[in-house]
């Protein structure tokens, strides 16, 4: 089976010597949706930032859609890996929703007509077509999250990486975001503390703690292992 993401023996330590990732190995098949859970400081964010090369790799290998994540491939990899940051404010820095969603396509050098098509398609996928002329600054958190997802969908990524997508959302916004993630056909890695969402949405779970990948298996199995949950500071 060909994989969309393959990570092998990835290790990383910060300049101060603190080891953030220690020999992490996993792979993700096309269309697979996995959860990445673990306590704060476990290395989840560091791992996510490696997947599109924002953190330079120190040792081990990462491949996305058959491309090595390094050097000359990076500009292409950044389109294939759609990274949605925890705070949508960091991702929305243009006057209007259109400008924000169009950033990726314009940067890629696509034609004006193509940019418009991409923006419309991306907004349609997150059900925000009506917001195209709106001012990003005035949207609610839930709306901003959807637009932030659209800003990467407009680059036609093979895999979506979401950091804490449900943090700070009220129950209704959370519910509708979960439904959105269910609908999207892309492979995805979702880093989160929201275990009820994991159980409902993501059939496979990776557990990280102290820079190590300590468990990788079916969500139902892992989340019903009280010893595992307790050892790594997780709670249902």
């Amino acid at each position: 089976m060909s994989c969309v993401v393959e990570v092998e023996h990835l290790s990383f330590s910060y300049p101060d010597g603190h080891s953030a990732l220690n020999d992490v190995t996993f792979s993700l098949g096309h269309g697979q949706k996995v959860a990445l859970v673990g306590p704060n400081g476990a290395g989840k964010s560091t791992l996510l930032l490696h997947l599109n090369g924002i953190h330079p790799r120190q040792s081990g290998s990462i491949r996305v859609s058959e491309l090595d994540v390094e050097g000359k491939n990076l500009p292409r990899v950044r389109a294939l890996v759609g990274l949605v940051f925890q705070s949508p404010d960091d991702q929305l820095f243009s006057p209007t929703v259109f400008d924000d969603v169009a950033f990726g396509p314009i940067y890629q050098g696509l034609s004006a007509a193509e940019v418009h098509t991409r923006v419309e398609e991306a907004l349609e996928m997150v059900h925000m077509e009506a917001y195209i002329r709106r001012v990003s600054h005035h949207l609610s958190v839930g709306e901003k999250k959807r637009i932030a997802i659209a800003t990467v969908l407009s680059m036609k990524p093979d895999v979506l990486i979401l950091d804490e997508p449900t943090a700070g959302l009220d129950p209704r916004a959370r519910r509708s975001l979960i439904e959105l993630l269910r609908e999207l056909p892309q492979s995805m890695i979702v880093a989160t503390h929201d275990l009820p969402m994991v159980r409902e949405l993501l059939p496979r779970t990776l557990v990280m703690d102290g820079g190590l990948l300590v468990a990788d298996g079916p969500t139902a199995e892992l989340l019903s292992d009280p010893a595992l949950l307790h050892d790594h500071g997780l709670e249902m």
Partner: peptide
């Protein structure tokens, strides 16, 4: 720094290598 990081995460090239990126 987070803003700059979010920008570079989306600064990508197109599937068609003939297109010049950067805008």
């Amino acid at each position: 720094l987070r803003l700059l990081r979010a920008r570079s995460a989306r600064s990508a090239t197109a599937a068609n290598p003939a297109l010049r990126p950067g805008g």
